[in-house]
Design a protein around this nucleic acid. Sequence first.
DNA 1: GCTTGCTATGGAATCCATTTCATAAATTAG
DNA 2: CTAATTTATGAAATGGATTCCATAGCAAGC
Lengths: 325, 325
Amino acid sequence: MANIKEIARMAGVSVTTVSRVLNNHPYVSETKRTAVLKTIKKLNYTRNMNAVHLITGRTHAIAVIIPNINLFYFSVIIEGLAQEALLAQYRLILCQTDYRHEEELKVLEMLRNKEIDGVVIVSTRMSSEVIDDYTAYGPIVICQDRGERRFSSVYIEHYSAFRSGLQYLHDKGYEQIGYCEGRQHGSSSSIRQIAFSDFLAATGQPFQEEWMMYNCMNEEDGGRVLHQLLKMKNRPNALIITGDHVAAGLIIEAWKNGIRIPEDLAVIGFDDQPIGRSLGLTTIDNQLPEMGVTAFRIIYDQIQNNDSYPVHRKLDYRIIERSTV
Amino acid sequence: MANIKEIARMAGVSVTTVSRVLNNHPYVSETKRTAVLKTIKKLNYTRNMNAVHLITGRTHAIAVIIPNINLFYFSVIIEGLAQEALLAQYRLILCQTDYRHEEELKVLEMLRNKEIDGVVIVSTRMSSEVIDDYTAYGPIVICQDRGERRFSSVYIEHYSAFRSGLQYLHDKGYEQIGYCEGRQHGSSSSIRQIAFSDFLAATGQPFQEEWMMYNCMNEEDGGRVLHQLLKMKNRPNALIITGDHVAAGLIIEAWKNGIRIPEDLAVIGFDDQPIGRSLGLTTIDNQLPEMGVTAFRIIYDQIQNNDSYPVHRKLDYRIIERSTV
DNA sequence: GCTTGCTATGGAATCCATTTCATAAATTAG
DNA sequence: CTAATTTATGAAATGGATTCCATAGCAAGC
């Protein structure tokens, strides 16, 4: 109800002085300062932040584009992001777009509209060209590896992470390796597929279409994969699975069906998820929380310094050896 | 850069007419409309949404207070909430407060500041009195059962859900029932504890402190609980566990230690989580996605109708019978 | 022919804080 | 004792839309 003008009138000062008190500006006498504070309290006044946003051109909010929060991979990144945003007193607008192009675009439009100060893109199907068009309006950071572009990125080297997983299996003596892949047309999927065929080529093995399992998203898919394996005449003796929860579903189904792990089937997962820890699953940790944290920090720095020079930050991965290989 | 005034000047119309075009107001002639649209395109104009928010007093944003997104219980609620928000073209501001009182208050202050149009509180430690103080500033809905208050709620009857879980075990012939509880001082924990002791009283059983397991939050805690059980001289033959992931950790550890489920130990969980499905875990489904969806709809209705009459909506639960009881 | 009602348009007020600029008093420096 | 700072204060411009109100042309109703 009350606005800065009314406070000024009642406290017998100018609006400028009230604004100074509100923003802790030093050049206000102690008498006036207390008078203003008293009036503010009396009228139960707070700033209308929309006016502040309008005049300052900043909203202290960033948006994050994500297909779905209820997937471990994403929720962990968001957790880190949200933690950092809280620390920096920034608002985090969650945009669960399910890869829908028009919704993803709407978020970038928010940047143009000045509704937000920056955008973190965790996963998208948008082309780099489309995103490039919006870099003029504010910092954008993407959690994918896209090479050099006009926007910043934080990424894991999926190629080498995947290759080192394969190499690990190979070093342990497994030669027949199958691959359970997540979202078939994800950006990292294609990189991993290349890593996979490069590995096969390097070790002189043929590509077996039967040993490729597509669209493995959750525990149930893992279970389904095990039954696929059971039907095969020529089975792989090791599996590399992108996502520990898929691996978990598979391992549980394996136990139920008397398949010994790793004796009959070795399994290596990704992302070091809690359920994998319980199962003793060997996995490749991708430092996902770090991803969210880093993404926020990049955005934050760019907002603070009004700097649009793109930054690229590579995160490390590491193999966590447990008992499924 | 460009604003509505400039568009008006260039298109040779008034700002009012431009605003009308922008808002699809019918009373604009076709000639002027196209002139305006052409100018908008030419100058690559978009509205400054902060100005719109200021003048309209609405932001089309709601905030959600949540301790941590990376917990299944919460992330599922958020998923539903985010889906509905997207449909209604609302922004969802994620406030991961980790139960910190000052942070939770800041979110309510955002409502007073007019930064947001409403608040969904998924879980909080704030007292109803504190929340009541903010209902004057906009709709608030809480996902907890707090009896009749000045703000709306969506809730599960934890008491009866828990009792029916116990009853189910009892009907199946289990008499020695232990209880793994989540966050010890959560609002639903105390209700469940009452349900538990009421049940014991009703069936004439004594309360066994040893059979109460506190602070079971994740898979590892479930594993830990199993080892606690192994050490007991007098073991329960059934366990009711709030949270399927805790139950999952326990079941996996049971398998490793040769405890047969349900023969040696029956287990009933809560929330119907994916990992539980793989394990064949009997569980009580609390319709969590529905919770988020409903919470949003309540807020949305109240915003639309400028209606602050509190609504209370109870969600159903149901037992999903699988093979651990 | 006169009253309504609808279409079309624009001027000006409004939302509310920040910030630049101008001014003046009080210090400090030299 | 004058010049240069520092402190303190307020008027007015600014950010960029929406909307109330006034005006006017035109068609329909009686």
